[in-house]
């Protein structure tokens, strides 16, 4: 039976010099090896939540007001030092170009950077680099200058940097923001391979990436939890569209076609295949 690897209990956080709560009495849990999508409009607190789980908040954004408890991989995320936490949780921030150190001359050395900081032995670093590059299919980039890579390649290298530490939990904060269609497809493929091997938290605005990939969904708005549970249940209900949270484009199309024809949409399609089927019946 799966047990929770991330537990957030009544957690609130407001940044220094801000009266507004970035996260407001948030409670949820994520099971081990679960793939959870986190969605919500701008300033919903998605990135702040990622920082809270990875213990960045108390260490990097000091002076903020914190209430409640966050447990990540059995560690208290509010008091655990970042070096301990980074062995358990890997966070890939939104801008992959900035995530790279900017001073390493080759991709191979860039991937080694975090491991060097943790003092992992050279032999193990070499082994892990090889393994993670094979896993992500970036062996050909090994000797390239990271700063000359394309957006998609940079994203893969950044992901390799995180995966090289072999974290139990992988958090991706809007990983598709700078990717083109092909890059998104590649990332989806990589995440599909990782699913079931790691606990994945995927903060995403492109809803089309989520169906078939995520098991559960956490919806935030203004720091508060709007929904937490099964992803398909949320998107299949009209509520998701009425609350203007966003939904895969095919779900939206089916909803609008159905409502224009004064027909009750009933259960909305969640996946692309379901949408094709539904469109067939509407016609």
């Amino acid at each position: 039976m799966a047990h929770p690897i991330i537990t957030v209990e009544d957690y609130s956080f407001s940044y220094k010099a801000s009266n507004k709560k970035a996260l407001d009495r948030l409670s949820f849990s994520i099971d081990e090896f679960e793939c959870c999508g986190i969605i919500g409009p701008s300033e919903a607190g998605k990135s702040t939540l990622c920082y809270a789980i990875t213990s960045v908040l108390p260490h990097y954004f000091s002076g903020g007001k914190t209430e409640g408890r966050v447990l990540t991989a059995g560690l208290d995320a509010l008091s655990t030092p970042m070096d301990l936490m980074m062995k358990k949780v890997g966070l890939l921030i939104q801008s992959s170009g900035v995530f790279l150190s900017g001073i390493k001359p080759t991709v191979r050395e860039e991937i080694a950077f975090s491991m060097e900081n943790l003092g992992i032995s050279r032999t193990e670093i070499v082994e892990r680099i090889q393994s993670v590059m094979e896993e992500l299919g970036i062996e050909s980039l090994a000797e390239r200058d990271p700063l000359t890579l394309s957006g998609g390649e940079m994203q893969r290298v950044a992901l390799a940097c995180v995966l090289a530490l072999d974290p139990q939990v992988l958090i991706l904060d809007e990983p598709t923001s700078s990717l083109d269609g092909e890059g998104v497809r590649d990332l989806r493929l990589i995440l599909s391979k990782l699913k079931g091997k790691k606990t994945i938290l995927l903060v995403e605005q492109r809803m089309e990436l989520l169906p078939g990939l995520i098991d559960s969904l956490l919806v935030l708005r203004e720091g508060k939890k709007v929904y937490s549970g099964h992803a398909e249940r949320f998107f299949s209900s009209i509520g998701s569209l009425e609350e203007d949270i966003g939904a895969p484009i095919w779900t939206q199309v089916c909803y609008h076609i159905a409502s224009r024809g004064n027909r009750t949409a009933g259960t909305l399609p969640y996946t692309y295949r379901q949408a094709l089927k539904a469109l067939g019946t509407i016609r």
Partner: peptide
């Protein structure tokens, strides 16, 4: 952002470091 990324990648960690090169 880069400062945050470097922290996330363990730049500020005290203790022995290793080197690929």
């Amino acid at each position: 952002e880069r400062g945050l990324a470097l922290e996330l990648r363990g730049l500020g960690i005290h203790g022995p470091k290793s080197y690929l090169v």
